[in-house]
Design a protein around this nucleic acid. Structure first.
Lengths: 239, 239
DNA sequence: CTGCCCGTAACCGTATACAGTTCTCGCAAC
DNA sequence: GTTGCGAGAACTGTATACGGTTACGGGCAG
């Protein structure tokens, strides 16, 4: 039991990250090391280390009562999207150039699923297909540091994906922009891919800000003041 | 003893990172959690967690015999510099725009120290002044994610700074490029800062590659084949 | 002298234990 | 009904312990 396949903390980390990407962990969830450890049949340490790693990477913040999702400030959001605009157009251009046939097929499949899910309001499927689409083109980016960095900044927004996609009109704009990007990528047109990625990012930022506004408003109405629930977020964002 | 100021692993991490930045930890050093723990009067766990965090961020790789510096492949180097070229010109432009008087003074002091250290071949001082220069302008970058990301990718190259600076001719080119950047920054000229940062990065890449070649050559001559010392690097670069 | 083999020590990964801190909830007073 | 307070639970941070794996080095055979 001591060593199953290889490295317990690694698999715990991977699974937690997957759950974050799939939006399975929401803003109201609290992650506690003992719970996770129990769920995986491990002890506290591996769970704790996996959580701390997620904290170090900015996916979670520690509080005195479990680990929770960070609340991104408007400055954070603007900053992260500024970064993404610096990196992703370039990466998309590279992906268009180095696109493999397999990846092109995967992109097409994912795009198809995105359209379907969008049509029938299936948010879960939409999130999954969106993730598959992302992984497909990022997989063609040769620069692994570039791909990893982009992945990381994308994931900051995965947590409230459900909110992002809940509004059909906003979602429409998002899907259209993605569709245009898809065309450029599969045409293997680097320049067009760059441009459309830029456009897509602006659409994504708008969608995110709208979702965030809805969420804040909802929270304000649900919680009529009583008991300040201010997280003692002493998180760090280290790096 | 249990809680000194706040968070032991945090201070261990910070100190280790500082030592990495100051090139105090070289490619031949092996970091072992028990040693570090003892040196700081703590137990293994905090030391271990600090080390694992450094591994997760790509500063170290774990082996079965302690933690060591990763050996960057040519692809890694090219990739990281590609990233830096995407980010740092933009950041330098922002810094030029938002430069504070304090920061300008600090830049001037650092630049002075860089010239002095360069003149007298004082590599340690050069590294320190170089770091101070970097921190001064990065401190004016409002986008904290941008600044943090840049810092991180810069630090990948700190480990063999001594080698980078050991050759006077190479160093000359490096310092000249930095000097040009300094002029643009203190003139608060965003466009010129962008351009000169781009030029500086090419100079830095050249310097790094030259240093790396020297190091590889030196290693090859010292170690006449015998006993492959291939680190079992199962490190990951997670992110 | 050289190459192989095996014992040993070093080091990692995981588990368990304990102390300190902070939130929560119930209870009592107003 | 509301508010203040205190005991206990919950959770984190750190320490210690143990088993397993792998590199290292000395001894023996060739």
């Amino acid at each position: 039991m001591t060593v199953r396949n290889l490295n317990l903390v690694e698999s715990l980390y991977a699974d937690l990250r997957r759950r974050l990407q799939l939006s399975e962990i929401g803003p109201d969830d609290r992650l506690v090391d003992t719970d996770i450890a129990e769920a995986y049949g491990a002890s506290r340490m591996p769970a704790r280390e996996a959580l701390l790693r997620l904290v170090a990477e900015g996916y979670l913040v520690g509080s005195t009562r479990g680990f929770v999702l960070p609340v991104l400030s408007p400055e954070d959001i603007a900053g992260i999207f500024e970064l993404r605009r610096q990196l992703e157009p370039r990466a998309a251009g590279a992906a268009a150039r180095d696109l493999t046939p397999d990846a092109a097929e995967e992109l097409a499949r994912s795009m198809e699923r995105i359209h379907e899910a969008h049509a029938v309001d299936d948010l879960r499927s939409l999130i999954k297909a969106n993730l598959a689409f992302r992984n497909a083109w990022l997989g063609c980016v040769r620069n692994r540091h570039m791909a990893a960095t982009i992945s990381r900044f994308m994931d900051y927004f995965q947590a409230i994906r459900l909110d992002t996609f809940s509004d059909a009109a906003t979602r429409r704009v998002y899907v259209d922009a993605l569709s245009a990007l898809f065309d450029a990528l599969t045409a293997r047109d680097s320049l067009a891919s760059q441009d459309r990625m830029t456009a897509f990012l602006f659409a994504a930022e708008t969608a995110y800000l709208a979702a965030r506004a809805r969420r804040v408003e909802r929270q304000a109405s649900v919680r009529p003041g009583r008991r300040n629930n201010s997280r003692t977020t002493r998180g760090n964002e280290g790096t």
